[in-house]
Design a protein around this nucleic acid. Structure first.
Lengths: 191, 191
DNA sequence: TCGGTCACCTGTCGAGCGGTAGGTTTCGTT
DNA sequence: AACGAAACCTACCGCTCGACAGGTGACCGA
């Protein structure tokens, strides 16, 4: 069973890589990308820093893997983004602070010069805005009940999600992320 | 004129410190707080790193001074926050990317563990939300035209401002921050 | 003119960083 | 049983970081 065994071998390695990426997500959440040392990530999966570098040749390569994971994670909801699904997404995120914290920290860093995640986020926001506008158009047509066009509502929707995340991360007890987001959707959807 | 001379001396020193804080704002905008080295800040004002440490004994002390500057800068508009003034503020900020970038980078970092700016931002958002709610109440009463209470609208308002800043910093040509913000205010103020 | 404070310097330190080089163990395949 | 690649390690490197110690010159009030 040559294929099977080859698969097994490759799977072991990919499992290891997945472990490392998971650990990297945690460490980045705690210290940011610049503050995350390869040694700290390695220790979390029981490796030395050099052992980690066997799987990812540079720190930036590891970050790329982290961002790629996010990409395919986002792809799960698919192009079908309806308002109620967005609320569920926000509620779901509110129970997994780690992920939010990782990418909020990365987003903040990414606006600095020459940050390796900058292109990723720029590109990501472009597509997210476009997808969001398309979803709003599919649901409401050329004008939302509030009078906005989908293209003008989309950046606001994205901004609210991100902005609420920061407020919530800093002070979870004072900010009900999901409720606030529902408020905003009401604002968009009401006449 | 002992007082006068003493003042002069103190003023010289404070001017120097102000110069350093200004340089620190720039460097933090470019590299974040963790990425900003004292040497880089010092070089920008024509000092050695050790010369800078004469004015601010630690890196964190310098950050505190930077945050303090922000505090009194925000205090300028006073408690009188009206909707149209907010628009002017956003428009003004859109012409000074440096400031926005500095504090967007700091905000992103601040959600990480043990970050020295975390308490600052937590506290700041608490008061900004409260001030904003008070301003909305003064303008609209207990219910905004959209039906929201001031307390529920305030976090959304703050979130939109922050979120738009990130989108704008990453891709200024694709995001019209002021226009989007006006859209949101319309959303809030319309029935 | 003297004395002292202030501003700033050179020198140095220890720790941590990402990354390279090269060896050793483990393990599936033949 | 032998081989070869993959996984992982030890050792090391150059660099940068924030911070400490101690010295020097200028300025300023007495």
């Amino acid at each position: 069973m040559p294929y099977g065994d080859a698969m097994t071998t490759r799977t072991r390695s990919e499992e290891r890589r997945a472990e490392i990426v998971r650990a990297a997500l945690e460490v980045i959440a705690e210290r940011g990308y610049r503050g995350a040392s390869l040694a700290a990530v390695a220790e979390r999966v029981g490796l030395t820093q050099q052992g980690l570098l066997h799987h990812f040749p540079t720190k930036e390569a590891l970050l790329v893997a982290v961002l790629r994971e996010r990409d395919q994670w986002d792809a799960l909801p698919g192009t079908g983004w309806r308002a109620d699904l967005l609320v569920s997404l926000v509620e779901y995120n509110a129970m997994r602070p780690g992920i939010i914290q990782t990418f909020s920290a990365l987003l903040g860093e990414s606006v600095t010069e020459g940050h390796p995640a900058r292109a990723f986020f720029t590109r990501r926001y472009t597509t997210v805005r476009a997808d969001m506008a398309a979803a709003l158009r599919a649901e409401y047509g050329e004008r939302l009940p509030s009078g906005l066009t989908p293209e003008r509502a989309a950046p606001l929707l994205v901004a609210v999600m991100d902005g609420l995340q920061y407020q919530w991360l800093l002070d979870p007890e004072s900010v009900d992320m999901a409720a606030a987001f529902r408020d905003f959707l009401t604002l968009l959807g009401e006449d």
